[in-house]
Design a protein around this nucleic acid. Structure first.
Length: 251
DNA sequence: TTTATTTGACCATC
DNA sequence: GATGGTCAAATAAA
């Protein structure tokens, strides 16, 4: 995937911050690959398996980053300032500081950022293997595009997972000159509906049912763009190598 | 008729 | 008071 990765393991001892950046880069690439592959998986079982695998890889990377942080902190070396599990640190928070919410009182309150699981930038924000229902849209102060709010379509299963999608603004000063719209997707909470199916020993995950519903939050148009038949690695690499797609996450 | 989306209002937090 | 997150009625689409 990235040739730079092959030599990264040699930098652990003396290059903590460099290792950080390499790991972050690896994590970004995995997340991008996840966003690319999931739309092409028509079979819901395959999509579910792919989500599990990708999440497992991402979690492993997070674990390594966490270990590395603790090592560099103990050694007095300044670790790179990034948020674990958050690919686009600072940017994903929309300028908000990560402050814990103390009170649980009241139905409507600002989101508890501690619930945030992960975030990413993708050109296919609706394809993450889950079935979402849009429940709101808000114009965010200082933002060109409105933010959309989604929750898991299976809230009757006590699934509390939510996500927000916001189109990323063009920033030509930072080498983002392509016209392909990108979206910042921030995930919150946890898919308990998925756990339920896992416990039952089935793969019939309603969250993963990408093919049966044609109304997955604006998915149809995006799916047509990316459903080009079976994937093969050579063509996949061509996509990544395509400068027009500009796979840089942090712009 | 059912289901999903839109949108204004409400509420919590800053 | 400003802002962001959520609710719920109205509306649109299948």
């Amino acid at each position: 995937m990235d040739n730079k990765m092959t030599s990264s393991s040699m930098m652990v001892v003396h290059g903590g911050s460099e290792m950080d950046s390499l790991l972050r880069r690896q994590q970004e690439l995995v997340i991008q690959l996840r966003a690319l592959i999931l739309p092409a998986l028509r079979d819901s079982r395959s999509a579910g398996l792919a989500v599990d695998l990708f999440d497992g890889v991402i979690d492993c990377i997070n674990g390594v980053i966490s270990r590395l942080q603790s090592i560099t902190a103990a050694g007095g070396e300044s670790a790179a300032a990034f948020v674990l599990g958050d690919v686009i640190s600072n940017g994903a928070g929309e300028g908000q500081e990560e402050k814990p919410v103390i009170s649980n009182a009241g139905q409507k309150r600002r989101r508890n950022n501690e619930k945030r699981s992960r975030s990413l930038v993708t050109i296919v924000p609706h394809y993450d293997g889950h079935h979402w229902r849009k429940y709101g849209q808000k114009k965010i102060n200082g933002r060109q595009h409105a933010r959309s709010y989604y929750k898991c379509a299976y809230t009757e299963r006590n699934c509390s997972a939510t996500k927000t999608i916001q189109q990323q603004e063009h920033n030509r000063t930072l080498n983002c000159e392509d016209e392909t719209p990108k979206y910042i997707v921030v995930y919150y909470g946890h898919h308990s509906c998925r756990d339920e199916n896992t416990r039952n020993g089935t793969n019939n995950d309603p969250c993963m049912d990408l093919t049966q519903s044609g109304k997955i939050a604006g998915a149809a148009t995006d799916f047509e763009k990316f459903d080009q038949g079976d994937l093969d690695m050579s063509s996949l690499m061509e996509v990544f190598d395509n400068p027009e797609l500009n796979w840089n996450i942090i712009c």
